[in-house]
């Protein structure tokens, strides 16, 4: 600034600044929620905490680079999940991750009720038995109420295909959980 020059702030500029602050606060709240869901989805996809964090970071890095392509008013969550899904698919192709990789998902935090803890872990174990094509639709719908249309767009699937994968996956999941329960019963008896 030139010596002697001063700055004055107009009412419009103050309102603009406030508007920006409000928009940013709302965005930060949304991002906190979306990134928490992304981390969970990444855990299910990668089965490993470090790999999940890497996937989240890569997703965010790509989102930053492509921020100009995001359309205000469109669903930011779907956009981020779609980036994560595509990133994961590319990574799998590059590294040829084995489909039968051993489950490495850490146990749930829930520790107040041991029976419940076992039940939740059984659900996660059963989930890992499913082929990825069935696991992804199930998890996306389970994570914070993503609609079928949003989840299908995230996975780049026609809605009909999405319906049938979700349906078949849930039935298969139920059978696996029932199988795990009966094994446990036999052990107890």
């Amino acid at each position: 600034m030139n010596p002697g020059a001063h700055t004055y702030v107009t009412q419009e500029a103050i309102a603009g600044e406030q508007e920006n602050m409000d928009a940013r606060a709302q965005l930060e709240r949304n991002l906190d929620e979306y990134v928490a869901s992304l981390r969970r989805y990444a855990m299910v996809l990668t089965r490993n905490r470090d790999a999940a964090e890497d996937l989240v970071q890569e997703t965010l890095t790509k989102a930053i680079a492509a921020a100009d392509q995001w359309q205000p008013g469109s669903d930011l969550r779907v956009w981020l999940f779609r980036i994560m899904h595509n990133t994961h698919v590319s990574e799998r192709r590059r590294h040829k991750v084995r489909e039968d990789a051993r489950l490495m998902i850490p146990e749930p935090i829930e520790d107040t009720d041991p029976t419940k803890r076992i039940e939740l872990q059984q659900v996660l174990d059963a989930l890992q038995e499913l082929p990825e094509a069935q696991r992804q639709p199930i998890v996306l719908v389970a994570l914070k109420e993503m609609s079928y249309a949003d989840a299908a767009r995230t996975l780049d699937l026609p809605l009909g295909t999405f319906y049938s994968r979700l349906g078949r996956g849930r039935v298969a999941l139920r059978k696996i959980i029932d199988g795990l329960k009966s094994k446990r019963l036999k052990l107890v008896v």
């Binding site: 928490a36 981390r39 969970r40 855990m43 299910v44 905490r49 999940a52 964090e53 998902i105 850490p106 146990e107 749930p108 935090i109 829930e110 039940e119 939740l120 872990q121 659900v123 996660l124 989930l127 199930i138 998890v139 389970a142 994570l143 849930r170 999941l173 139920r174 959980i177």
Partner: peptide, 15 residues
């Protein structure tokens, strides 16, 4: 099953 799955995902320790 869906309820349990939601709870299990919510309880995942992401570190």
């Amino acid at each position: 099953q869906n309820l349990q799955l939601g709870e299990a995902l919510e309880a995942l320790d992401t570190g």
